[in-house]
Design a binder for these strands. Structure first.
Length: 566
RNA sequence: GGGCUGGUAGCUCAGUUAGGGAGAGCGUCCGGCUUUUAACCGGACGGUCGGGGGUUCGAAUCCCUCCCAGCCCGCCA
């Protein structure tokens, strides 16, 4: 049978809904079934299958390089569904497969070291890495030589650390270990014993699958490369004979060593189209979210392979749209990435979890320059949950339902400093000064508990880092040393007079007023005088509201600085 | 070329599954905080809901068509 004749075998044949686009978008039920939170709609779908406990939710990626924010869709989309199911009394196991028997096919332009810091390919031994093209990630030495067993182990460890930082209890599973332990033996046997049926099923979805096609890729015992050149299959002995002839990688071909040998089922891998449904089978997967790249190719073929070859039902699927980073596609290989570790340096974990709680069907941009907007949105979401802000019904319903899954603990009385205000506070280092400024602005009250103040100040450090990273209009620092600058006579005289005023002891509001007055008395443009003030304290021509700011600083310091003495 | 998804205000998005008021935040502008300088408050401006056609008493929402973007249609994952 040729692939073209099988168009009628759509993925919707003979089973429950497997349209991956439909799930998470709501059901076809009555108005009562309408869900404010997509994870509830997905959980409905999972429970409708009446799965055995524990319900298993899977995600997975190849550890091909930096685990970036986009990869965390695999973790976070599953996480929310897991949490919803747990709340409904289900036992849930969330696993994440590191698809680490995949072969390195391309050298990524950028990598991440043991601390998650991004480094360029040139900073590691790229030549040594390049010799491993075509070899599974678990058989490639860790380029950072930091104690991990392999390239795969290095990057998988980073991803696991990021998941933990986000507070997601996910169990990482090494695909290579599943093969090595024989977990795949039975499914591989089934595939190869009925290779014709396997071929036929796959051919319906993929061109170029002919009678020669063997759905197993042995690993060469000499050079470690994977090969597609299987010369003989011995299903009973559970081994295949092969010739190491090399594999395709991207748009080129990597030559093998030519060795001819025999590999067991544990010494190789299934091609992806079979491996994915094999994972469902072996791990008993009930739900799996995946990116839109899998929606049209791998998913429909996986459904048919699961049903026709393995005789089992595929999991509940859900397609998520991809994020962009600053308007452009994330790409591990090109290095246009941001890691969870980096992001958590800029926003709180709950804000990032909120980012993932939003509609998975819509492409979202993660715009670092405008993180303040994301944080503002989270703050609104939080206030909506506590009924502290009137919002439209939709958001209110979402906030009521989803908020508890976004935060570690639902706790009233939290203080959230507006992000840009937190960035303003980041212009000074002194903790007490930050607190005082926040009090003046009304964000902290007399009866605000200490824990809430501590939590609130966490955001200041992050907003400070954001201002520095973006080098935006909040990236000012109070200068501890007197900036070198010459002022003209009128401005100098005005500054001296303002210094006297401050020395007399006035509050911030009065100082603000006096700045205007002083400028006028000396026939200095108000704008120029402010600029002089910003120059003295920030070595810039702009800054935060100056009078109030100076009113909070140590008086002696302000006076001396205005007199250009220190 | 075929298929799938998306396109709503300057920006980021909600609303589309189930037809009925076009919305939010930010930005901008104006005003307030006793007198331009970013934090706080109020108000205004702002959209042919990608274009066109159709169904309907009524369409951002349903149907058709076209345009644009991403993805898939690899013995890649």
């Amino acid at each position: 049978m040729s692939g073209d004749d099988s168009a009628a075998e759509g993925p919707d044949d003979g089973g429950p809904t497997v349209d991956p686009h439909a799930v998470g978008r709501g059901g076809e039920g009555s108005a009562d079934d309408h869900r404010a939170f997509w994870a509830d709609a997905v959980a409905d779908e999972v429970e409708a299958r009446d799965p055995d406990d524990p319900v298993t939710i899977k995600g997975g990626v190849s550890p091909s390089g930096i685990a970036h924010l986009g990869n965390f869709n695999e973790v976070m989309r599953g996480y929310f569904v897991a949490e919803v199911l747990r709340e409904r009394g289900r036992e849930v196991r969330q696993v994440f497969t590191s698809d680490d028997r995949d072969a390195l096919r391309e050298l990524p332009r950028r990598l991440a070291d043991t601390d998650g810091e991004i480094v360029e390919l040139g900073d590691v031994n790229a030549g040594a890495l390049g010799e491993n093209l075509g070899t599974p990630y678990t058989d490639i030495p860790d380029p950072f030589e930091d104690g991990h067993d392999s390239y795969a182990a290095h990057f998988t460890a980073l991803l696991a650390a990021d998941a933990e930082a986000l507070g997601v209890p996910v169990e990482t599973v090494s695909n290579t270990e599943l093969y090595a332990d024989g977990a795949f033996d039975d499914v591989i046997e089934r595939v190869l014993r009925d290779a014709d049926a396997a071929r036929e099923t796959l051919a319906a979805h993929q061109d170029g699958v002919d009678g020669e096609y063997v759905p197993f890729m042995p690993q060469c015992s000499e050079c470690g490369m994977l090969t597609q050149d299987v010369t003989e299959v011995d299903v009973d002995a559970r081994e295949v004979s092969y010739r190491c002839s090399g594999i395709e990688a991207g748009d080129r071909f990597i030559e093998g060593c030519g060795h001819e040998g025999v590999a067991s089922f544990r010494e190789g891998k299934l091609p992806w189209r079979f491996e994915w449904p094999a994972q469902w089978e072996v791990l008993g997967v009930d739900f799996e979210p995946f990116g839109k790249d899998h929606a049209e190719g791998s998913w429909p073929s996986g459904v048919d392979i699961a049903r026709d070859v393995f005789g089992s039902e595929p999991p509940v699927p859900m397609v998520y749209e991809w994020f962009t980073l600053n308007g452009e596609a994330l790409s591990s290989s090109s290095g246009h990435v941001v890691t969870v570790g980096e992001v958590l340096g800029l926003i709180e974990p709950e804000v990032l979890r909120y980012f993932f709680a939003r509609n998975p069907k819509k492409a979202k941009d993660f715009d670092v320059e405008r993180l303040d907007q994301l944080v503002d949105k989270f703050d609104r979401f939080e206030r909506a949950h506590f009924g502290e802000e009137s919002v439209d019904d939709r958001l209110a319903a979402l906030a009521e339902r989803a908020y508890p899954f976004v935060v570690d603990e639902v706790r009233e009385g939290r203080v959230r400093l507006p992000y840009t205000f937190a960035a303003v506070l980041g212009m000074v280092d002194d903790r007490e000064l930050r607190v005082q400024l926040a009090r003046d602005e009304g964000h902290i009250a007399d009866d605000t508990p200490e824990w809430a103040i501590e939590d609130a100040l966490e955001r200041v450090e992050r907003a400070r880092r954001w201002a520095e990273r973006c080098d935006n209009e909040y990236n000012y620092r109070l200068q501890s040393e007197l900036p070198a600058h010459e002022f003209d006579a009128a401005v100098a005289a005005a500054l001296d007079e303002l210094a006297d005023f401050v020395a007399d002891g006035h509050d911030g509001e009065a100082i603000q007023e006096e700045i205007y007055e002083t400028a006028r008395r000396h026939d200095v443009e108000v704008g120029d005088f402010f600029a002089a003030g910003y120059r003295l304290f920030f070595d810039e021509t702009q800054g935060p509201r100056l009078g109030e700011f100076l009113g909070e600083l140590e008086r002696e310091f302000v006076v001396k600085r205005l007199r250009r003495e220190a």
